[in-house]
Simulated assay, not measured.
Amino acid sequence: MQTSTETETFGFIVNDISRLIRAEMDRRTTEAGLGLTTGEGRVLLNVRRFGPTRQNLLAERLGVEAMTLSGLVDRLESKGYVERQPDPADRRAKLVTLTDEGEAVVCGMEPITAAIRADAARGIDPDDWQLLLAVLKVARNNLMAARAEAQSAESAAA
């Protein structure tokens, strides 16, 4: 069986970019004295982006197990950055919400995320950068649709 050593493919490139962004976020948030892990920062940024979010949905968005997310939320809650509140649509579920202190931390992260984006875009024509973002969004939507289709087929088979 022949194996491919090609690493300049879509998956490898996207994974490398993601890994580099996480490493830079870790380094820069540490330098800024924000006292957050990358995982904690990702939770805060996602809750800010989407608003109060059920823990199971947040875990799925972050690509982590429910127990991993629970630990991250526990730490953020102990720092006063998030709160767990009952979901009015389902009292058994909890919504993770950002506190005012959490909002302030996210505001402290904004210049860091902007600088990382600027570093990534350095030397790329602004129109090309916008095209890249648009194409990546299409790829994301295609993968989300394929996943939804597969889940629907699994549900129908069960």
Rank of each mutant, 00 (worst) to 15 (best):
E65V: 10
F10V: 08
E31V: 13
R27A: 15
R117D: 03
T68K: 08
G35F: 00
S78G: 01
D90A: 05
M1L: 05
M144R: 12
A139V: 15
V138T: 09
S152T: 08
D87A: 00
L57Y: 10
A134I: 04
A115F: 07
L34K: 07
T113K: 00
Q55P: 04
C107G: 13
I124F: 01
R61P: 01
A134E: 12
G80K: 06
P52L: 00
R75C: 03
E8S: 06
R49N: 09
N15D: 12
M144E: 14
V138E: 08
T37S: 12
P88C: 05
G80F: 02
D127T: 09
R48N: 10
T53Q: 03
K137C: 03
L133P: 07
D74S: 06
G33C: 01
L95P: 05
K94I: 00
I116F: 06
A150W: 04
S155V: 12
S18F: 09
Q130P: 07
A157M: 11
A150R: 14
E65N: 14
S4W: 01
T99A: 07
L76S: 05
P88V: 06
A118W: 12
G33L: 02
E77S: 07
T68G: 06
R19N: 12
T113M: 03
E65W: 04
V14M: 14
L131Y: 00
V14G: 08
T3W: 14
R117T: 04
F10Q: 09
R122A: 15
L132V: 11
Q2C: 03
R28N: 04
A139I: 15
R140G: 06
T53C: 07
D90S: 01
K94H: 15
A32S: 02
A148H: 09
E101Q: 03
A146L: 15
R91P: 03
A32T: 05
P88W: 03
A158F: 07
T9P: 10
T5E: 15
A59W: 05
G71P: 09
D74G: 10
M1G: 12
D119Q: 10
G102K: 13
V106I: 00
Q2E: 14
G71A: 03
L72M: 12
R48I: 06
N142Q: 15
T9A: 11
E154M: 12
T53F: 01
A148W: 02
D26N: 00
R147T: 13
L95M: 03
A157P: 06
G63D: 10
I124M: 04
T30D: 05
A66W: 14
K94P: 08
A156E: 13
G51F: 11
L72E: 00
T53H: 07
V43C: 06
Q151W: 08
G63K: 08
S4H: 11
S18N: 12
E6W: 11
T38C: 13
V138I: 10
G51Q: 07
A104G: 08
